Simulated assay, not measured.
Amino acid sequence: MAEASNLDREKIIRYYSRREIEEEMLYNCPNREIAIKYGESGFGKRPDTLTYPNDILEFAKDGATSFHASEEIWKNPLSLNLEQKKADADALRAGWDLVLDIDCHEFEYSRIAAMLVIEELKAAGVKKSLSIKFSGNKGFHIGVPFEAFPEKIEDRPVKSLFPDAPRKIALYIAEMIKPKIGERIMKYEKNDISAIIKKTGKSTSEISEYGFTDSQGRWRTLSYDKYKRLLESGKDLPPPRLNVSSFLEIDTILISSRHLYRLAYSVNEKSGLASIPVNPEKISEFKREDAALDQVSASKFRFLDRENAVGGEASSLFLKAFEWDF
């Protein structure tokens, strides 16, 4: 199968031939469905698995450009099929990891969002169990492994709550950091709204959000017409704030059964860079050029690091997300 034309085939093979890279990529492969992408030809057969380091090199020689894993942990990934009923898939699922996908056309805005998500996770008690990696292009993936989850929430086994639980958590975090993202992006751009418009390609109306903060400190969005009517009636309302959701996304709707994420150290076809782990304490220092294939080496920071996960550390996060009134 042919690989994407904008990637150097020999460079890809040379990169995937490095044993330290192969071994790190395999770290999150056990009991996961693996999907292999062949550049512009798309994904190969599903489900698939990766077992041995040399498998990665052999697939690369056959044109593979990137490797993706399921967020869900399966008893037997090869038993999955498209015709499977939900009950059968639920019976096969042994657990799942939380992977938050932060994506924006402007890399610096993604960095700001990632730092805020990390802050919010820490505020909810998730500290030793969190990890982050560069997506390989313009965003970041933030992960919390299943080992840090509570066993049950609302008397239901957490392993059975995919995809509802990660959606709730992603929505909760997105809502909690929403006002801060706007403030920090405005600060980063020195309050120059035209810079944001230029970088995002959005209009003034698209990046403006109208509303007010209620008595519980929650932002309540209003349509422009209602906002205007209330102002005309004498209502004291704050000025419009930056609507980051028009150009920055924390994946929620796309979280679904058999949802995949790019394996750590896998190549991103769009950029030719690797999706490498990042020190959660030094996101601000990360540079995209650090992910150039000839610059990458195995990091002491692992994405979804199970060995360092603290059992139950994400319990408060689950409670907050499930109690949140959206």
Rank of each mutant, 00 (worst) to 15 (best):
D8F: 07
G44A: 05
A314W: 04
S205D: 13
A148P: 05
I173F: 08
E269C: 06
P166R: 07
K159C: 04
Y52K: 15
E307G: 14
E22D: 06
F134M: 12
K127R: 12
F107Q: 10
N268S: 12
E285C: 08
E269G: 09
L237S: 04
E323W: 09
N31S: 15
S129K: 03
R302G: 03
T65D: 13
I73M: 06
Y38H: 12
A89P: 01
E232I: 10
V144G: 00
H105T: 12
M186D: 03
K235V: 15
R241Y: 05
Y188A: 06
V244D: 01
K85D: 12
R229Y: 03
T252C: 10
F134D: 01
A123V: 07
K320H: 08
Y172Q: 10
R32H: 01
E33D: 13
A292R: 15
V278G: 05
F43S: 14
Y38T: 12
V244N: 11
L319I: 11
I250N: 01
F149E: 08
I13N: 02
S17F: 06
D97W: 02
A314I: 00
R184K: 15
L260K: 00
R9I: 14
G139V: 06
N31A: 09
K61C: 11
D155P: 03
V278W: 09
